[in-house]
Amino acid sequence: MKQTLPLFIVFGCGFFMIIAFFIPLGGFQDVSQTFENWYTGVIAFFVFVGILNLVRVNTERIQKRTRDWQYSIILLIFLGIMMVAGFFIGGREGRLFLYLFDNFYIPLGATMFSLLAFFVASAAFRAFRARTPEATLLLIAAVIVMIGRVPVGYWIWHGFPSLVEWVMNVPNTAAKRGILFGADLGLISMALRVLLGIERSYMGGGKE
C-alpha cells in the first residue's frame, strides 16, 4: 500500500494533466487549474521545509563539531535576524530588513560570484591547453568569443563582433540544438517511466 497508492496518484494525476492539456473543455481545464494552484501552494510550503532542514543540518554540525562548524553558528544567527527583521519589523518596508539586504546580502553574494574571475584566470593558465585537435578547436572558438564579446575586440578589428555572432548562431546553435533534442527525448522517456510506475526511485527506499 505504501508504494501502490503513490503510484496510482502519480499515474492518475500525470495522465489527467496530459489529457487536459490537449482537451480544452471547461471541466478538464477547471480541474487542471485546481491542481496547478495546489502545486504552487505546496511549492510555497517547501520553503518552510527547506528552512527546517537548514536549521536541522546546521544544528547537527554544531553539536558534532564537524569541520568549519563555526560558520553554522553565523548562518543560524543571521537566518534568525533576517526572519525577525522580515516578519516582525515591517517586512520589506522595514528599514532593518532592507539595510541587511542592501549591505550584507548583496555585497556578500556579489563577492562570492566575483571570486570566479580569479579562479577562471588561474584555470585558463593551467588547463586550457591544445592537447588534442578538439581541444585546439575549442580553444580557438573561446579566444574569438572572449575577445569579440568585449569592446576591445571591436577596437582591434571591427569584424570581431560579426565573427562572434557567427560562432553563436551557427556552430553553437547547432550543437545546442542537438544536446537539447537528446535531453528532451530523455526527459519524455523518463516522465513516461515515472507515470507508468517503472521508475520508482523518487519514492525513496521504503518497504511495503
Binding site: 574571475a117 577562471v120 584566470a121 585558463a124 593558465f125 593551467r126 588547463a127 586550457f128 591547453r129 591544445a130 580553444l139 573561446a142 579566444v143 572572449m146 575577445i147 564579446r149 568585449v150 569592446p151 576591445v152 575586440g153 577596437w155
Partner: peptide, 16 residues
C-alpha cells in the same frame, strides 16, 4: 572586462 579578457587570452597563450 576588456582588459581582463585580454589578460585571460595572454594566460592561455603562455600556457600553450
Amino acid at each position: 572586462q576588456s582588459i581582463v579578457h585580454v589578460l585571460l587570452v595572454i594566460f592561455i597563450v603562455i600556457g600553450n
